[in-house]
Amino acid sequence: MPGADIAVRTEELSKLYGTREALVGLDLTVPAGQIFGFLGPNGAGKSTTIGILCTLLRPTLGHAWVAGAHVAREAGRVRRRIGVVFQEQTLDQDLTAMESMRLQAELYGLPGPAARAASTALLDLMGLADRAGHVVRALSGGTRRRLEIARALVHGPRVLFLDEPTTGLDPQTRAAVREHLRLLCREHGITVFLTTHHLEEAEHCDRIAIIDDGELVAEGSPGELKAVIGADLVTLRTDDDERVAEAVRGLFGVATVTGPGGVRLRAPDGAALVPRLCAELTVPIHSVTVEPPTLDDVFLHYTGRTIR
C-alpha cells in the first residue's frame, strides 16, 4: 500500500469490455498535493481510468489505491476520501446553490453545523458567495462547474477527480476554474486528478500522463516531456522551397520537411539558427518562425499522430 505522499497508485491496471481492451497494464503514481493531468484523445481510456479510481468500475486485472485505500477492497473508504466532478453536469436543476451543497453534505453524513460552515466557506472559496440563493437552472455554465467543484469538496476529500472539467467553457471561465483548482492544491493540499483532451489544459498541470489506446505512453512534467523532443520547430517561407530545403540539408546537416506551409526543420536552439539561415541562404526568405515544442509534438513523437 502506498504511503501518505502518494495520492493515487495503479499497478498493472487493466479493463476489458468483452474482448475490447479499454485499459492495458496502467502503472501510474500521482504524488499528493499536485495537479495531475491525464491527457489523451477521446476514447483513449481516460474515463475508464477515472471510473475505476472512483469505484464505479471494477478493474479486470491489476490494483489501484486512492488516498491510501484499495479501490476494490475498500470502496467505501475510497468514496469517503474522494470528491468527483463528472464530465456531464450532475446538479439538481431545481435546487439553489446552497441547497445543492447541503444535500451533498447530508449525503456524506456531515453534522448540521459542520455542513453549514463547510458549505458557506466553499461557496466563498469558489467565488460563489453571492450565488448561494440562486437556483441552479439560472446559473451559467462556468458558475455551475465551480458549484460542482465546491460541492465535491464539502466532505473534505483528499483527492479531487475531475473528468474534462473545462469542456464547453469559454477561455475566460476556463482560466478562472483553473485558478481555483490551483488554489485548492496550494492552500489546502488537495490532490487534483483531471482528464483532458485539450493540450492547452495539460500545459497547466504539475505533472501529466499521456494515454493512447488504453496504454500509458509518457509521464512527467510538461517541461520534462517537451524536453524529450529537445528541439524547436523552425518554419521557413521562401521563393523556392525545394532549393532552400536542399541548401539547408547541405549547409546545416538537418532533415527538412517541405509542405504547403513552407520548409520545416527541427533544431535544438531555433532562435540562434535564424541569423545564420538568413546570412547563408541565397534564395530570398519571406519569413522565419520558431516554435518551441508543444505537447502535441510530444504526443506525435510517442504515438506517430497528432492528438487533434
Binding site: R80, A114, A115, A118, H155, G156, R158, H188
Partner: peptide, 9 residues
C-alpha cells in the same frame, strides 16, 4: 472545516 469534517467522516 474541510480538515475537521474530513476527520469526522
Amino acid at each position: 472545516s474541510t480538515k475537521t469534517t474530513g476527520a469526522v467522516i
